[in-house]
Design a protein around this nucleic acid. Sequence first.
DNA 1: GCCTGCCTACGGCAAAGGTCGGATCGGGTC
DNA 2: GACCCGATCCGACCTTTGCCGTAGGCAGGC
Lengths: 213, 213
Amino acid sequence: MTPTENVAPRILVIEDEPHMLRNLTTILRIEGFEPIPADNGIRGVELARSRTPDLILCDRMMPGMDGFSVLAELRITASTAAIPFIFLTARGERDDFRAGMTHGADDYLTKPVKVDELIAAVRTRLARKREAAALDAGATHRPASPSELVRLGISEREADVLYWLIEGKGNADIAAILGIAPSTVKKHLEHIFEKLGVENRTAAIMTALQAPR
Amino acid sequence: MTPTENVAPRILVIEDEPHMLRNLTTILRIEGFEPIPADNGIRGVELARSRTPDLILCDRMMPGMDGFSVLAELRITASTAAIPFIFLTARGERDDFRAGMTHGADDYLTKPVKVDELIAAVRTRLARKREAAALDAGATHRPASPSELVRLGISEREADVLYWLIEGKGNADIAAILGIAPSTVKKHLEHIFEKLGVENRTAAIMTALQAPR
DNA sequence: GCCTGCCTACGGCAAAGGTCGGATCGGGTC
DNA sequence: GACCCGATCCGACCTTTGCCGTAGGCAGGC
C-alpha cells in the first residue's frame, strides 16, 4: 500500500574488524537488505543519526567507543532511540549476554554467527518493530513545530498558520500570534486548502496529521 | 504527570511449577511489581487478554500449551502483541536461546535465574517499552469507529457526530449522513464542546485524537 | 408518579470561517 | 528592462459555525 513497502530495510553495521564488516555487508546485501557500513563507534553514531537505519548491528568490543557507549548514545536521541539494536560479539558467556540485554539491546548474537541465525535475528526484530508500527494503523502525529509541516508542500508562512490551526486556534488568534491581519490568515488558509486538496480546516488538520513523517 | 505513573507495573507470570511460580511472584511483589500468576499456558493467554499486563514472564517448557505457542497466540491479538515477552527456561543452550529470540521473545532468562538478573531484565524491557511510548509524545489516534469515542464521556449519538467531525465533514454533511436536522447536529456539538471543555471544532478534534486510548 | 438524562427539532443572532478581488515584494527568466 | 510567478499581505462580502432559548418524546432511576 505504501510506497515504502518494497524498499530494502537499511541495516547499519558497526564493526571495527574490516574482514568481518565486509562479510556482514555482503551477506546482508545478498539477503535483500541495504547495509550501511561503519568501521568504528563514532562513525556508527553519526550514520545512525544521519541515515536513520531500520536496524543496527553493532560489535560490542571496539577500540575507542565500544558497543555499550554506542547504544547508550543512540538511546538518548529521540530519532534513534526506537531503532532495534542487535549486539554482535565474540564474548558468549552468560554474564556478557545478560549485560548486553540489560543495557537495552534487543538481541545478542555471538560470533561465530551462522548466516541463517543472523538473518533470522534481523528479520525477527524488523518484524517486531513493524508489528508495533502496524498496531498504530490510525496513528497520527501532532507536529512539534511549524517547520515540520513544510514537507506537505506548503510555504513556511503557511506552515506557521497550519501549525496554530492544529493547536486549535481560531483565525483571530492565529493573526494575533503571527502579528498579521486576520484576513491574511484566511488567505493563507485558502492556499493551504488548495495545496492539501481539502475543503475546510478540519479536513486540513487530519491530512496534516496523517501525512507520512 | 499522568495518574498512572505511580501504579505498579503488572507482570504476568506463566509457570507450571508451583514452587517456582510462588518464588517469582514473591520476588516481583517485593520489588514493587504487581504479579499475576498463571499455572499453565491456556490460563496465561486468557489472563494476558483480560488483564493486559505490562510485561509477560513465561516458562518455555510446559505441559499442554508451551511457551512458543503462548507467544505465537499473543502476537496475533492486537491488544497483546506489543507486550514485552521474556522467556524463562531451564534450557540454556545457545540454540535454545536463539530459537526463543527468533520466535519473537524480547529476552531469554535461563534458570537458575538470579534475582537481580530477573529484576534487571524486567526493568530494562519495561523501560524500553516506555521509551517507545514516550517517543510518541505527539502521537495521536484516529478513531476507527464512533464507538471508540464514547470513552471521552460523551453519549453514543454525540460520538457519531464527533466521528464525522473528525472525518472533516461540515455540519450540513453530518446532518445528512446521520439523517437528522442540521440544528440537531449543532446541539450535539454544543454538548460535545462542553463535555470536552473546548471552544471550537478544531480543538475538539485534537482532544479526541490525543485522549489516552 | 416524578425527575433526570438523552435525542430530537426549530429560530434567531453574533461571531467566526471561507471566497473573492486586489496589492506589494523578491527572485528568476527571457 | 520586461516579464512571470510564488509568497505575502489586506479589505469586502457571503456562508458557516457557535450559542442562546425553547420544547416534545422517551428511557431509566428514585
